[in-house]
Design a protein around this nucleic acid. Sequence first.
DNA 1: GACAACATGTAATAGGTTACATGATTTA
DNA 2: TAAATCATGTAACCTATTACATGTTGTC
Lengths: 186, 186
Amino acid sequence: MDIKTLCLGVLTQGDASGYDIKKHFECVFSHFYVAGFGSIYPALTELTREGLVTCREEPQPNRAGRKVYALTPAGREAFEKSLIATPPRHRIRSEFFVLLHFAHLLPVARLRAVLDERLGDITRTVHELQRVMNECTGGECALHPAQRFEVELALVTTKAHRDYIASHRAALLQQVETAQPERFRA
Amino acid sequence: MDIKTLCLGVLTQGDASGYDIKKHFECVFSHFYVAGFGSIYPALTELTREGLVTCREEPQPNRAGRKVYALTPAGREAFEKSLIATPPRHRIRSEFFVLLHFAHLLPVARLRAVLDERLGDITRTVHELQRVMNECTGGECALHPAQRFEVELALVTTKAHRDYIASHRAALLQQVETAQPERFRA
DNA sequence: GACAACATGTAATAGGTTACATGATTTA
DNA sequence: TAAATCATGTAACCTATTACATGTTGTC
C-alpha cells in the first residue's frame, strides 16, 4: 500500500492539511507505517490531479494559509476498493536484529549501547500506544472495536519485545563479554 | 542498511552463490529483512566491482555453473565498520494493521479472512523460528549467544502477537457483526 | 507430464528518502 | 534569544520491486 492510499484513509476521518496528515502518521500510524513530508505533499498534489480529493485554501490571521484537503466520493470509493483488495502483509525491516545477528563482530560496549537505545525507543512506543488507548477510551474520540483491537495487539506485542530485552540483557552482555577476545572489550 | 551490506554479512559466514544468499534471506533473515533475486544479483555484481568480494565460477556436472562469492579483507573491514555505524532501527510496515485500522469500511467476511490469513502467516513464522532454534541447538551449526537471543526475542514477540489474535478474534468479529450495517454482512 | 528446485541475470518502473529552500509565530 | 511548532513544497538521488528471459534436473 502506498502513501497516496494511506492519505485517502486519513481523509476518511475528516478533512486535513498535509501537516495534519503528517502528525497523524506520527501519532496514530507510527507503529505500523512511516511517511515524511517529502512523500505526503506530492501524494496530495497527485490525488488532487486525479480528482480523488479536493483542496481549499484556508487563510489564517498572521500565518501562512493552510491547504485543507477533503475526500471526494470518487476518493472514498477508490479507498474502499483498494482496502478490500489489499493483502494483509506485515513486514519488519530491522537493523536492530541485523546487529544482534552479527553481534560477535561488534565491540561489547557498542552492543550494550544498541540494546539500551532499542529499549529507549520501545519504551517510547509503549507510552505512545498507551496514550492513544487512554485518550480514546472515554470521551469524544472513541475507537472502533477493530481499532481497539489494533492498538491492544500492538501493545501486547511491543511489551513482550521490551520485557524480553529487559530481562535477558544483562545475561547476554555477560556471556558475550567472557566469550569475546580482548580487542573487543573496548 | 542496504542489500549490499547484508550480502557482505552473509558472506562473513562462508562463501556463497547468489542463490545461496537468497535462501539465507528466506530462512535465517526472513523475520527481519526481505530481498529478492532482483536486488541480490545486482548487489553482488557491484560489490565485485568495488573489490569487496571476489567471484569464482564453479562448473557443475550437467548443470549451469554457479558463481561463488567470497569476502575480501576490504569487504570484511567495510562490513564491520558499517555494522558499528548502523543505528539500531526497527520499523514495521504493515498492511494488516492498516486493515484493522479501517476495518469499519470492510465487509465482515473480508475482516475474518484477513485475520485468518495473518494467523496462517504468523504460524508459519513461528515454525520457521522454532526450526532455526532446534537445528542449531545441539550440533555443528551452533548459534552465537546474541543469535540465540535474537531468535528467542523474535519468537516471544511473534507468539505474543499470534496469541492475542487467536484469543480475541472471535470477540472482535462478533462485535463488528452486530455494529455494522446490513450491506456489510455479505 | 507437471511442478518444484537449481541457477543467473536485465530492464523498466515505482517508490520513497534526503536535502534543500523559506518564513512566521509561539514557548521556554 | 533560541528552539520548537506551524506550514508548504521541489529536486536529486537511491533503492528495490516486478516482470521478463532462459534452461536443466529431480520429484510426484
